[in-house]
Amino acid sequence: MRSAAGRRSRSIAFAAVLVSGFLFTAYLAAIALSEDLLTELGAPEQADALVVLGGDGPPRAAKAARLWLAGSAPAIRVAGQGDCNAIRDTIIAAGVPASAISVECLSRNTWENALNTVPFADKAGLRSGILVTSWFHSKRALETFRALCPGVSWSSVPTAAPNLLATAFGQYGRYVAMEYVKLAAYRLRIALFADRRTHRGACAGTPSDADPPYGSHAIG
């Protein structure tokens, strides 16, 4: 009896090790592939405004300040509940005048970031915008903004990814892993619920004059 019980225990332990090893390998693969599968990187061209999404404030704020100081856009919109004012203050501390920055502090997620940017886009008459967010969040953010505000030409200039080990074993690991699920869920939500025919402002657009939701291409 003891021998049989011991064999069962060893079998269970061995199976647990195999499963743990598989999950850890899958996790590392998800991190390693994040720049290919989750990131949308555009050239920092001239645009009407930078839209900085909240959640991972300091690096996003620093990126937005550098883009503004380099002349990429004359205005900055900070969107997101929780750290919107902190992001604004960090951008100002980097040398951007307060008059160039506006904030929207109600959005709780990426979908609301896009929805709540519509009034700003209308009022400013935006024709182009650059999204500033984290590398792993950039594809989902770009697809969402293109779907909900298709009349504006959106591009993405995200923050840079740390190296593989720093990402996997640092603060970003779990967010990167979850982003695959969030991206799939948002694509379904866009397919089911994004209505591009009801808006009649800067964000208005049709499939013929705007990029499709996933055309060629919460920290979140």
Rank of each mutant, 00 (worst) to 15 (best):
N113K: 13
P207T: 13
P212C: 10
P150V: 05
E143L: 03
A168V: 07
S153D: 14
T198I: 07
Y214I: 01
Y186H: 00
I130N: 06
A166M: 10
N85L: 15
G82T: 09
A161T: 07
L188H: 02
R2A: 15
C149M: 09
L33P: 04
G170Q: 03
A210L: 00
G6M: 08
G82C: 12
A86N: 03
K182R: 13
M178L: 11
A79D: 05
V96C: 13
E112N: 10
F193R: 02
L164Y: 02
D195H: 01
L115N: 10
L69F: 10
S134N: 15
A32V: 06
Q171M: 09
R196V: 07
G151A: 09
R197F: 00
V78S: 07
A202Y: 02
S72M: 08
A49G: 12
F136R: 01
W111S: 10
E143H: 06
L192N: 02
T159V: 12
D56E: 09
A204L: 03
I190N: 00
I130Q: 02
A94R: 15
V152N: 01
C149R: 09
L164N: 01
G201E: 04
A114S: 14
K63V: 02
P74F: 15
P213Y: 03
L37D: 11
L106P: 05
G6N: 13
S34T: 10
R7G: 08
R197V: 10
I101E: 11
P119T: 10
K139N: 11
L18R: 04
S20Q: 05
I31Y: 00
D36K: 13
A160K: 14
T90I: 09
T25V: 11
A210E: 07
L67H: 04
S99I: 01
A114K: 08
A202T: 02
L41D: 13
A16K: 02
I31R: 03
H137P: 07
L50H: 09
A93V: 12
C203D: 00
R7H: 08
A29D: 00
Y180I: 08
G170W: 06
Q81V: 10
F14E: 01
T110M: 11
P212S: 05
V118R: 14
S208E: 15
C149H: 06
S9F: 15
I12F: 12
I130Y: 03
P58C: 00
G173F: 05
S216A: 04
V103T: 15
D36H: 07
G173P: 06
A93P: 08
F22D: 01
G55H: 03
L37V: 13
G170D: 08
A160T: 13
A26R: 07
A121Q: 06
V152K: 03
A49M: 11
F24G: 04
M178T: 14
A16D: 03
R127F: 07
Q171C: 02
V103W: 07
N85K: 05
S20I: 03
R88T: 07
A166S: 11
D209N: 15
A61E: 04
T25H: 01
R8Q: 08
I87M: 14
H217Y: 04
L41G: 00
E179V: 03
G170H: 04
L192D: 11
